[in-house]
Amino acid sequence: MNAVADQFANRGVGSYFIYTHEAHPGENYPHLTSMAQKFKHAYALRDVLGVKRPIVVDALDGACHRTYGSMPNMTWIFNQSGIPVYKSDWSDASSVVNALSYFLDVRDRRKRGDRLAPFNVHRLDYRNQDRQAFYHGLERNGPKAVREFKDAFG
């Protein structure tokens, strides 16, 4: 997703990361109990995981995250008026690139004088699954996170 941000940065597209809560709390990154801890974990997103986009932190009770569906790693695209034009219950760079390319083309078509009316689309997108890399990430959180995920999903 960092690369997507870079790819579209000079085309009027901003990118942010909202830090929510710990989906897989472990010994190294336990569940949140304070805003001070929440900021500390958010810094780790930047310094350990390498998130290069601006990171903002939700309230401790997850008010924003909960209202937007509470999925552990979801992506939304908003227009400048605050209208969501894309929402995905999982973050996938290819899906976001596809959506942004489409919306930028809409902008270009309007500039050329096309009269366009919005309509709704519901579509299944597909993402790569890399269970080995996922477990590697869980190990960073601590053995508890690995054990609990295996218990839940095998």
């Binding site: 997703m1 997507v4 941000a5 579209f8 009027g12 597209v13 901003g14 990118s15 942010y16 990361f17 909202i18 830090y19 929510t20 809560h21 710990e22 989906a23 897989h24 709390p25 472990g26 990154y29 974990h41 958010a42 780790a44 997103l45 350990v48 995981l49 986009r53 903002v56 924003c64 995250h65 937007y68 999925m71 552990p72 790693n73 979801m74 992506t75 939304w76 695209i77 908003f78 227009n79 400048q80 008026s81 605050g82 034009v85 973050s91 976001v96 942004l100 919306f103 930028l104 902008r107 990430g137 869980l138 960073r140 959180n141 996170a145």
Partner: peptide
Amino acid sequence: LSQIWAENNLTVVEFGSFT
């Protein structure tokens, strides 16, 4: 959030955690 989406024509917002 409204300040964030007002900055650009389009804004991608990823929600997530460290873990």
